[in-house]
Each structure stands twice: as structure tokens, then as C-alpha cells.
Design a protein around this nucleic acid. Structure first.
Length: 421
RNA sequence: GGGAGCGUAGCUCAGCCUGGCAGAGCACCGCGCUGUGGACGCGGGGGUCGCGGGUUCAAGUCCCGUCGCUCCUCCCA
């Protein structure tokens, strides 16, 4: 039997990994710029954490979570998202007792058992931030500013993106809104699709998300969560909109935006790309003011977002195809003859100790072939043959211009950087 | 979970409809050029045609199953 990677879990090969490294670097740098510190929770957690945190009834937990017993029968889960883990760690280590906001970020693999397709894998990677401990709408605005800033930083223009924004209110507002939706849709039950008739009983909020044409009219006429906000939630949302205006950040109010995780309260948002297909959400997030308490900590509000690495890589690489031929070395050493090769190994070791990225041929290729590899991988070739050995020199060839020059080995090694501009 | 399309060389794909020697381009290796890459020419290596079963004198081609990928639905990152 041929061994292959598990369905929905793919290899990121060196060519693509270059882009991943660049993105991860920019993400870390930007998060640090906003005062977020990295946290690395485990990939495996008690299954119950997600059942309680994300919500037993959500698709993510109910249908898509990898759950398995360990050798003692404890039910574990591969994390389907990281917010619940971060909050668990926040409570477990008493981070709320440090007397300040906890601003945390993470980067890593998540797992959901779904049908794989473009922009959706079973093992995928998310980056995200969580700010725990303040209800200030300025923090919502900061998180959204960070999201926009990150997109700009990695090279995505504002024109190709749009931010969907909504407020779904706090837990006091929810029952009244749910009833209003139920009343509205019950009256028009006949025009709803089969799925939505079922949702009517289970969770009428979900109907807003439906894309069936036959449901659109009823959805358009549905009561909006914004009309059911309590005075404090309304004030919070209005302040957020005003702050976004000050920061010049575009948004589209979307009364249909509900999101698929139970812990959200008040602000919810998604940043989407116009250049992707069905899976167009690059990142999504919002407030979760009850989550810390639900997971056993002191009442603590929180806000954050999570973005998908794969989707970012997808958008970026479809605008700018990956360059497989990009040189990865400063210099390629090309020895001629057995004696020169011994000397070349020594030269190579010294170059690397001086911070010069260098390599040589280990496949016994011909000089011609070695030069061709050199041209592909490095800007400079360092030739070392009997002639050079006799004089204590080496030949430096600039592979871009084709110009060669002869240098004394000692002089070159004293400061190789000076010759490898 | 439901629907559609596609799996042939490392990569991109042709061949399948209408069964009859497994192909092209790129990449790789060698030589022309034994101390110098990109161009050119000549030559070469590489394949259980995704996997399993069936029909047939004969299956890459037709049928069934299965696995994988892609798209839609769904869900979301």
C-alpha cells in the first residue's frame, strides 16, 4: 500500500514555505507592534473545553471536531480553534490577576473534520489575537485596525477586501431578538427552504446566514439584531463605528452576519477577499464577553480575531506566483579536481562561520553542470582549481554579469562580505 | 451530509468518445565543450495509466466499486 498524507492534510513544500515564513514573520512583528505577546497552548485539549466554550450545538463541535479517547479513556480533542484554549490558559494561570489587559497572540495548526476543498483543509493554520479584560469599544476598534493593517502589510490592497460588521448584542438582548426572529419567520414558514424550517426550531439566528434564493425575501425583511440592542450595547456599537470612522477604516454593516460560534457577543466581524471563491473569509472575530466566565474564570470581557494562513497564502500566490528559481545562497563553491575539493570543504566551513550562505556540489557533477547549478542557486561562484591552489587564490565569478576576478584566499576570507555585494 | 467534474512521467497535459505497440512539452542526466552557467544541437533515463474488481482474444480507453483532488451546496479561517 502506498503511503500518502491523510485526506485534507497537506505538505507545505520548501518553495511555498518561503512565503509562509515571510507571512509568519510579518504577523509576529505586527502583533508585537500592537503589544500582543505570543502564547502557545497545546494542540490537544479536553474535548469538554470546546463543547463548553465553542458550543455543543455548533457545527464545529458537533460535526467537525476530531475527538478520541486516550489510553485512560479521557476524551481529548484536536483543537478546532484556539480562542477556547487561550481562555483556558488565561484562567488556569491566573493571568487576570496581573492587573492589566492580557493581550495574547497565537499561530499554529487547527483541525476540523470537513470536506476538503480549495482554502479549506482538515489541518489548517490560524493566526489570531485575543485581548482579555476590557469592554472598551476602543479595543474592538484596535483589533479591527490591526486586521486591516495586517492585510496592508502583507501586500493586500483595501480595494480587494471588505469588512462585514454587526452587533448581535449581549446575553440579555439575545432572548428577545431570538423570539422576534422566530415570530417573523414562523409567519412566513411556507416560503422557507427545508433547512431553514428546521433552523426555525433549533436556532433562528442561523436562518440569516442561509443563501437559498427562496429564503432571501423573508431574510431581507427580518428584524435586525441592531434594533434589539440594550442601551449599553447600542452605545458600545455606536462608539465603535465612530472610532472606525476616525481611523478611516471602511466597513459594511451586515445585519445577516451571525457567525458560527456560540461565544460571540456584541461586535462580530469578518474581513473578506473579493478574489477568492466560496471560501472568501480571510479572518473573522468579535467580542466574547461571557466566555471566561463560562469556562470557570471571573467575569472578564474579551475581543479578538482569527485568520486563516492558507487563505492568505492563496490570495497572495494567485496574484504573485511563487518563484521556484529564487536563489537561496550567497555563494556556490565549485572545486576542480580532488585536491581542490578538500580545500573547498575547508573554505565552505569558514564561509559559513562568517555568515555567508554557501553550498557546493555533492553529486559529482561535471564542472559545466556545477556552474549551471551555481547560476540557479547563488549570485556568485567561487572556483577553486589547481591553478588557484598553486597561487593561494580563488576565482570569484559574478553570475549575473559574468565577470570573473582573481582574489587571494586570505584576503577574501578576512571579509568575504566585501566581495559578495 | 448532498450534487458535479477530474486522477496518464518530477510538473503541465494529449491519448479515452469510436478498445489494438504508453506519448508531447518542460524538468532531469550525458555528449558536442576534459577550467566556467544561461543559447543551440544530438542522445539518454524515467510509468504498477490512482487502487481493486468485471466485460473482452485484447482495457489507459467500456462497466462497477474504492481512494484522492477540484468546484458547487453547507460550514467557516
Amino acid at each position: 500500500m502506498k503511503l500518502e498524507s491523510v485526506r485534507g492534510m497537506r505538505d507545505i513544500l520548501p518553495e511555498e514555505a518561503v512565503l509562509w515564513q515571510r507571512l509568519e514573520g510579518e504577523i509576529r512583528a505586527l502583533f508585537a507592534l500592537y503589544g500582543y505577546k505570543e502564547i502557545r497552548p497545546p494542540v490537544v485539549e479536553p474535548a469538554e473545553l470546546f463543547a463548553r466554550g465553542v458550543g455543543e450545538a455548533t457545527d464545529i463541535v458537533h460535526k467537525e471536531m476530531y475527538v478520541f479517547p486516550d489510553k485512560k479513556g479521557q476524551m481529548l480533542a484536536l483543537r478546532p480553534e484556539a480562542t477556547a484554549s487561550v481562555v483556558r490558559a488565561y484562567i488556569e494561570h491566573g493571568l487576570y490577576a496581573k492587573g492589566d489587559l492580557a493581550k495574547l497572540y497565537y499561530l499554529g495548526p487547527m483541525f476540523r473534520y470537513e470536506k476538503p476543498q480549495k482554502g479549506r483543509q482538515r489541518q489548517f493554520h490560524q493566526y489570531g489575537v485575543e485581548a482579555l479584560g476590557s469592554l472598551d469599544p476602543a479595543l474592538d476598534a484596535e483589533v479591527i485596525d490591526l486586521a486591516w493593517h495586517l492585510m496592508e502589510r502583507v501586500g493586500l490592497s483595501r480595494e480587494g477586501l471588505f469588512l462585514r460588521l454587526n452587533s448581535i448584542g449581549c446575553r440579555e438582548d439575545r432572548p428577545a431578538y431570538r423570539e422576534a426572529l422566530r415570530a417573523h419567520f414562523s409567519a412566513r414558514r411556507e416560503e422557507l427552504c427545508a433547512d431553514c424550517q428546521r433552523r426555525l426550531a433549533e436556532n433562528p439566528l442561523r436562518i440569516l446566514d442561509c443563501k437559498e434564493p427562496q429564503c432571501q425575501e423573508a431574510i431581507a425583511a427580518a428584524p435586525k439584531s441592531l434594533d434589539y440592542l440594550c442601551p449599553s450595547c447600542r452605545a458600545h456599537f455606536e462608539e465603535l463605528l465612530s472610532l472606525l470612522g476616525d481611523l478611516g477604516l471602511a466597513y459594511t454593516l451586515d445585519p445577516r452576519l451571525v457567525r458560527g460560534i456560540d461565544y460571540y457577543t456584541r461586535t462580530v466581524f469578518e474581513l473578506c477577499s473579493r478574489e477568492l471563491g466560496a471560501q472568501d473569509a480571510l479572518l473573522g472575530g468579535g467580542r466574547y464577553d461571557d466566555l471566561v466566565e463560562v469556562l470557570g474564570g471571573p467575569p472578564t470581557p474579551g475581543v479578538g480575531f482569527a485568520g486563516g494562513m492558507e487563505r492568505l497564502v492563496l490570495v497572495l500566490s494567485q496574484r504573485q506566483p511563487l518563484d521556484a528559481a529564487a536563489p537561496d545562497l550567497d555563494a556556490y563553491v565549485v572545486p576542480i579536481g580532488a585536491e581542490a575539493r578538500r580545500k573547498a570543504l575547508e573554505l565552505l566551513a569558514q564561509l559559513r562561520r562568517r555568515g555567508v550562505a554557501a553550498d557546493l556540489d555533492y553529486l559529482g557533477r561535471s564542472l559545466r553542470k556545477a556552474m549551471s547549478v551555481a547560476a540557479r542557486r547563488a549570485r556568485y561562484a567561487l572556483l577553486l582549481g589547481p591553478d588557484e591552489l598553486a597561487q593561494g587564490r580563488l576565482t570569484l565569478k559574478d553570475l549575473r554579469t559574468g565577470q570573473s576576478s582573481s582574489l587571494f584566499l586570505g584576503e577574501f576570507l578576512a571579509n568575504p562580505r566585501a566581495f559578495l555585494a
